[in-house]
Each structure stands twice: as C-alpha cells, then as structure tokens.
C-alpha cells in the first residue's frame, strides 16, 4: 500500500479537489516544492502557478492557481487559492470569452491560464 496524503484545494466558492494523493508539487513564493506524505508542518505563501498532482511518477492533475496559501501537515495539504482552474477540463474558447468580460485581476489570471494551455 502506497502512502498517501490528503490533498484539499479550496477556493472561496467551493472545494475544488479533495482526495488522497501520493505527491503534489506546489508553486511556493520561494520556489516550487513537492509535498510527500509525512512532510514537516509548513505554512507557505504561494505564487501564481500550476499545482501538479503526481501518481506513480506521472502527473495526473494540473490545476492553475492565482497565488494563495498552503497549509501542509504530516497527513494533509490544504491549498487555499482565490482563483483556480483545472487545466484538464479548461476550454480555451470559454476562457477567452470570460477573460474578455472579466475584471482586470481576473482577466490577467485567465490570460495566464490561456498561455499555459
């Protein structure tokens, strides 16, 4: 049985992801860092970037966040982000449409998402 850690990604509107994962890579303000089970407790500020969920050495989920905070404990990773978009289900046309009508900060983030897709 592979050890896992509980990943939670919450935005103000809802809980985006909630599942057991083997490893997650998070964009910290002082650089990317990976979180494995039994990680030392850590509270880290996050930058805009992609949260990557790793399973068996492969990336299974990629979620773009617009900065936030990560609360890491031995058994869990909680990522709080004001904006987050799952890159797997994101649709370029829909994002472009939203970016055109959204406010400045939102549009800025959406354009960043579009450029990474």
């Amino acid at each position: 049985m592979v050890e896992t850690t509980q990943l939670e990604l919450v935005t103000p509107a809802r809980i985006m992801t909630q599942k057991l994962v083997q490893m997650v890579v998070v964009p910290g303000v002082e650089g990317l860092f990976g979180v494995l089970p039994r990680h030392a407790p850590l509270l880290a500020g996050l930058e805009r970037g992609v949260v990557e969920v790793h399973e068996d050495g492969k990336v299974t989920d990629r979620i773009m966040i617009d900065g936030g905070v990560a609360d890491v404990s031995e058994k869990s990773v909680t990522i709080m982000a004001e904006r987050a978009i799952d890159l797997a289900t994101a649709d370029l046309a829909v994002l472009k449409e939203r970016a055109a009508t959204a406010g400045e900060a939102e549009a800025n983030f959406l354009n960043a998402v579009i450029s990474t897709l």
Binding site: V29, E30, A40, P41, L43, A44, S73
Partner: peptide, 13 residues
C-alpha cells in the same frame, strides 16, 4: 502544539 515552518517568514506571510 504543532511547530510550523514558515515560508517566507511569519511576519511577511
């Protein structure tokens, strides 16, 4: 009770 590490420093965070 948990001793957290902070990144960046507490005040900045």
């Amino acid at each position: 009770g948990v001793n957290y590490d902070y990144e960046p420093e507490e005040d900045e965070l």
